[in-house]
Design a protein around this nucleic acid. Structure first.
Lengths: 117, 117
DNA sequence: GATGAGAATGAAAACCATTCTCGTATTCGC
DNA sequence: GCGAATACGAGAATGGTTTTCATTCTCATC
């Protein structure tokens, strides 16, 4: 299961992961994939992304706070490690009486390879 | 239809909007609500948010580029107008060979009222 | 005022990702 | 080896969203 995820360079939906496992010969059930992904997600081992409505993508990520840079054409994902938004956001939010507990940033663009193609 | 959205202070799911319209006496079909929301969303009149998986929330927003500050407790939404991330992100993305086309930021926190409660 | 083409609408069915159920298989402690 | 507890897989159920299709509305034309 974890092997399958580490083999995924980019993000994948639960269905894709399941399909790939089955194609590979592992007779794993769809339910188990969902169960495992939910578990891993809850423990912060994988990140759950929802760029398009109706389905969730999972990705094996580094543990710390980070954001994602996604290529709109080929779906390649790069992690952005340094994030100095917390201070800025806290101040901005405080103007509205909010206390910030979390924030997510998702950047979409085009990677060099797709730009050349 | 637009009237219904302007009456929504915060974000609402398509189902909520439909329910409210029906309760108000407008015999509008669920399909029409979805159609109209998709149309408005495509034209940038309303924003589509998906903070939790499985359903989409819509919100009538100002037209320019902005982000959302959402209260995790009461779902109140505040727009954050000024966004000086573009330059920073472009530079960061360029390091990975990416050309940034868009970015979304979603901040979750607790508003003053909910913090007091 | 009647007519007809084309778009808009509503009700119900279809879809599809996700979750639940339940019977079976496996594991762990004893 | 035995029993309890857990994990698993297959299929059914769920629920938000989309599609279908027959009907209704719009409106320009006759």
């Amino acid at each position: 299961m974890l092997n399958a995820l580490t083999a995924e360079p980019n993000d994948a939906t639960a269905q894709e992961i399941h399909g790939r496992l089955v194609a590979r010969g592992d007779a794993v059930g769809l339910a188990t994939v969902y169960r495992t992904l939910a578990l891993l997600s809850r423990h912060g081992v994988v990140d759950a992304l929802m760029h398009h409505a109706g389905e969730v993508c999972y990705r094996l990520c580094s543990e710390g706070h980070h954001h994602h840079l996604v290529c709109g054409a080929c779906h390649r994902v790069v992690e952005l490690g340094d994030c100095d938004l917390d201070g800025w956001l806290s101040g901005l939010a405080a103007e509205h009486g909010f206390t910030v507990s979390a924030h997510t940033v998702e950047v979409t663009g085009t990677c060099a390879d797709c730009l050349a193609a």
